[in-house]
Structure formats: structure tokens, C-alpha cells
Design a protein around this nucleic acid. Structure first.
Lengths: 204, 204
DNA sequence: ATGTGAAGACATCAGCTGATGACATCGACT
DNA sequence: AGTCGATGTCATCAGCTGATGTCTTCACAT
């Protein structure tokens, strides 16, 4: 975990895929990947601002200077992580309980990314925030709005934003350490409560 | 607003109280007050971390060095603002619509303080976080928990924290610029929706 | 084996932030 | 008027952060 330079990293075995070269000691692609992975974790834990390039480099076992070399800077590295996550999953509709569960569990394991933090933080309107917010819309707000529109609820956009904001608050609060019981609650226990709360974003 | 040294500041009139001294050009008490006021505004707008002592000094028209002199540092200045807010109002029970309205309107005018941000964001300054969280508990969580307890709802603490987190998310989101309709919505328009949402934190 | 370009390590820079100490200036009191 | 503490101003420090440039080291092709 700390020093990839010393030990053999070939534990994975030899899968003969498009890339036959296994564990080169100098491998830009691997370094890039390690950086993105470390950045993904750290950004999720602490958010964008509070994560330093040196931390990212340390966790990745890669020199922080390579962030600038390979991505252009911290900003672009973050954008790379967002693009990575965007491809990952289908947008979740928070009101469908199964998808809410998936999302909740996932956000419990790793922290909520900067996307959720950007929902709540005052904006310099940087590139980072715009990307985070696009991600949030695509992932949370838009599916909700579509559901509300289909259900012929009035003010679907406002209701979707309201529910998304509430959800962001809960998810962020869980990892902030401010609320003890909320943080300690098991996702399965929290799920019905949270689902009930979010469901109230449409008229009964 | 910028240069208190130039103009006469005696607008208040001469109330003969314990302190007869009217508008001294050098007045530590006044400087302290200006600093606290500026800090209150800036912390509410941008949060603790993103506010610099130089900004505070600039807005207050006071040299930033006096922050250290009069308060000990940025941290203690923040604590002073929290103490100021704590004395202000009676704790609000979010489920009582009139109090929710009051709180919502107030948080709409000035931004949400760092108390709400700390509820939701991880922070590094422990003193600041603890003060913020105490404030939040006293102001939002505890009244809700007491209501739930009185209503014999199960898991009152968890439900109170859940509602508080959701409320914090919505309030913060409104001033973050991430959600257009949510930010643009009039408090009176938002009130029933938000009230309905929060009311769902207890079982129907 | 060996030359060459890629990959990485390291030192360092510039900007910002909070804090501090030295100095200047005011104003109340004698 | 003169003194001295209180108040305000300024320059500056130390720490952190992102970024950059240079030098070394390796892997591959020849």
C-alpha cells in the first residue's frame, strides 16, 4: 500500500487482455490510474478543496508532480474522476427504494464525492463546481424531475431540487461526524426513514 | 462604510448609559464590534474556511491584525459570532410551521452560518466544529427530538437528526447556487413543500 | 552494449493565509 | 503641557498548497 517500488506488484496474475505488458516498473498508464483512484477516494472523503495534491500522491504512491504532468493540474485530475464516475452507473431515481438503497450503501462506504458537497457549498463557480453540479443533476435531479413530470406533479423541477438537496444534506451529514445517531445508523435501518422523507417531496 | 475615521459616527444619539463616551476615533469596543459584524456576514456567506482574516478586516474597515489582538485569532473571532447568535432567538422547532417560516426567511436573507455547513461538511478546526455543532443541536436538533419524544415516536434522536440534516441540506443548497429553482423560490412558496418534507421525518 | 526518449524524483518557486512584533499615533489624566 | 497607556498601522514571518523545471534513472530499439 505504501511503497509499490520495493515489492513485486504482479499479484494479479497474467490475464492476457489487450494489454499484455504486466507490471512494468515504469508505466505512465498505471501511474495515471493510481492517481485517479487515490484522488477518487480522497475527494470522496474530504472534498476537493481539502484534498492536497501531496496527499493524493502519497496515497497513490506516485510523485505529486506527475499530477501536473499527466493531467495538467489538480483541477483536471478531478475532472477525470468525475468522468470516470459518470460512466459507472445508471442514474438513480431516489424514490425507487431499491436504487435508493444502492446509492445509500455506496455513499456510506466511500464518502460522498465533491458532487454532493458542491450542492451545498457556496460557489466560486469554478470548473470543479460546474462539473460536480452537472454530475449531480445527471445523477439525481434529472431522474427525479422526470418522474415528477411523468406523474403530472406540479413544479417538478422545484420538487426534484428540494428532494436532492435534502438527500445531499443527509448523506453529507452522515459522513461529517456532526450527527452521531445518523452516522451510526445502519443503511437498512435508515432506508425506510429516508425513503419516507424523500417521498414527501411530492404531494400525497 | 469604508472609512470610519473620516465621518462622524454618532448617528445613534446620546444615550447616557454606563458608557458616556460618544464617538472616539480610537475605540477598541467599536473595532471589536465591527469585526464581529463583518465576520458574522462573511462566515454566513462563505463559511469559516473560505473566509480570510484579511477579508474580514477589509469589510470591517479595521486592520486584520486587530483580530489577533482582540480575539486571539480567527477561531476565537468565530466563537464570538456564535455566542452572539446563540443569545438571539429561542430555539426553533422545525415542524411548527410558523417557526419554520421565521427560520427560513432569516436564513434566506443572510446566508446560513457555518453552523449548518459544519453539520454537513468535514472540517479540520475542532473548536470551530464543536461550537457550530453545539449551536445546531441547541437550535434545531434538540427541539425536534423533544417533540418526537413527547409524541412517543420511536427513535426520536435519529429522526431529529435526519430532519435536521435534510433541512441543512435544503438551506445550504439554496444559497449555494447549485439549484436554480430552489434558490429562486420564494420562501412562502417553499414553505409548504419543505414543511411537508420535514413532517415526514415522523411516521404518519 | 548502447543511445535515446519516456518516466520519475527532487528541489524550488510563487501565492495565499493566519499570526506576530515593532513602530507610530492618539487621547485621557495629572 | 507632558506623560504614558491604549489603539491602530505596517512589515514580515512561517506554514501550506499547487505548480514548474531540472536532473536522474529506466526500458526499449537498434
Amino acid at each position: 500500500m505504501t511503497a509499490p517500488s520495493g515489492g513485486p506488484d504482479r499479484a494479479g496474475g497474467a490475464e492476457a487482455r489487450t494489454e499484455p505488458a504486466p507490471p512494468r516498473r515504469r508505466d505512465a498508464a498505471r501511474s495515471r490510474e493510481l492517481l485517479v483512484q487515490a484522488a477518487l477516494e480522497l475527494f470522496a472523503e474530504r472534498g476537493y478543496d481539502r484534498t492536497t495534491t501531496r496527499e493524493i500522491g502519497e496515497r497513490a504512491g506516485v510523485d505529486p508532480a506527475l499530477i501536473a504532468r499527466y493531467f495538467g493540474g489538480k483541477t483536471q485530475l478531478y475532472l477525470a474522476t468525475v468522468r470516470l464516475e459518470l460512466g459507472n452507473e445508471t442514474p438513480a431515481d431516489l424514490l425507487e427504494e431499491e436504487r435508493l438503497r444502492t446509492l445509500l450503501v455506496r455513499l456510506t462506504q466511500r464518502g460522498p464525492g465533491p458532487s454532493f458537497q458542491s450542492a451545498v457549498l457556496p460557489g466560486d463557480n469554478t470548473e470543479v463546481q460546474q462539473a460536480s453540479r452537472s454530475y449531480l443533476y445527471e445523477r439525481v435531479v434529472d431522474p427525479l424531475r422526470e418522474r415528477f413530470t411523468a406523474e403530472r406533479v406540479d413544479r417538478p423541477q422545484l420538487r426534484a431540487e428540494l428532494a436532492a438537496a435534502a438527500f445531499a444534506g443527509v448523506v453529507l451529514a452522515r459522513s461529517s461526524g456532526a450527527f452521531s445517531e445518523l452516522a451510526a445508523a445502519d443503511p437498512e435501518e435508515l432506508l425506510p426513514l429516508l425513503h419516507g422523507l424523500l417521498a414527501a417531496s411530492r404531494p400525497s
